[in-house]
């Protein structure tokens, strides 16, 4: 649908609402997830906890010192990780600092309440986005297809200024499609399924799900890694919006109308 000025009605109300509610849910899920992580600040590639298979741990070996150990390599992260602000004006042995957790002070029970509520919100947003995009035909524009594969490198080359022009594309360029496909259909489901695998009740119903990820602790590791991937996507996404006509981009996700090239 286009108006007389050539603007395109790109995002339906359902897509716009689910986009912004998802942003809120994502912020809450990350901050409450880090709160929950703080209760056991290590990740093992195993089913039951096993220090011999420890991939990441954030510790405070002594008062005033914070360390982070990744694959056996330890670096001092005092002030950032391990020894951080307690959310109540002091410093304490705590993996992630109070300014990034909800609530800011250490409280596993409250962190879980936020996390388990907004997990449902996020899943509902994801379903709304999928269903409404599919109905409007937008989903096909966003998903990576076989014909996009040969265009991936030329598009990257264009971004790296190795090529003067991008390969021809429709509403979204091949790299955008790759990112949306990866995030929407691989990483988001992975984060939801690994989260479910942490539940002893879900594990009883579907133990193969837990074992698919290598066990409960391994699922916790994937869940954390999935969060990092979503944060990386968020940063790239915000950078792209900020550099590719921020006013037009923001307007389109608020009003639905997109103007200009590729409209």
């Amino acid at each position: 649908m286009k108006d007389s000025n050539g603007a395109q009605y790109r995002f339906t109300l359902a897509v716009r609402l689910s986009h912004w509610i998802w942003l809120l849910a994502f912020a809450v899920l990350v901050s409450s997830g880090l709160q929950i992580f703080n209760a056991a600040p290590y990740l093992d590639a195993s089913d039951a906890s096993n220090p011999a298979r420890r991939v990441l741990s954030i510790d405070s070996p002594q008062d005033g010192v914070g360390t982070t150990t990744l694959f056996g390599h330890t670096v001092k992260t005092t002030g950032w990780l391990g020894w951080t602000d307690d959310g109540e004006g002091g410093k304490t042995a705590r993996a992630f600092p109070g300014w990034i957790t909800i609530p800011s002070y250490q409280d596993l029970a409250d962190g879980r309440r936020w996390h388990l509520f907004f997990a449902w919100v996020a899943v509902l947003c994801w379903l709304t986005w999928i269903v409404s995009s599919a109905r409007k035909g937008n989903l096909r524009e966003m998903l990576l297809s076989r014909s996009d594969l040969p265009k991936l490198w030329p598009m990257q080359a264009y971004y790296l200024r190795l090529r003067k022009t991008p390969p021809p594309y429709g509403t979204y360029n091949p790299l955008q499609k790759a990112a949306y496909t990866l995030i929407g259909f691989v990483i988001a489901p992975l984060v939801v399924l690994t989260g479910l695998a942490l539940s002893p009740g879900v594990d009883a119903i579907s133990h193969p799900l837990t074992m698919l990820f290598g066990g409960r602790q391994f699922a916790r590791l994937w869940h954390f890694a999935g969060m990092l991937a979503l944060i990386a996507f968020f940063c790239v996404h915000v950078f792209q919006v900020a550099t590719q006509g921020v006013v037009n981009q923001m307007r389109s996700m608020i009003t639905g109308w997109y103007r200009g090239e590729h409209a």
């Binding site: 056991a40 089913d47 906890s49 596993l108 942490l198 002893p200 409960r216 602790q217």
Partner: peptide, 11 residues
């Protein structure tokens, strides 16, 4: 497997 609310597990 005993699953603690803190996140760890032991069999």
């Amino acid at each position: 497997r005993h699953d603690c609310v803190e996140g760890w597990s032991v069999i």
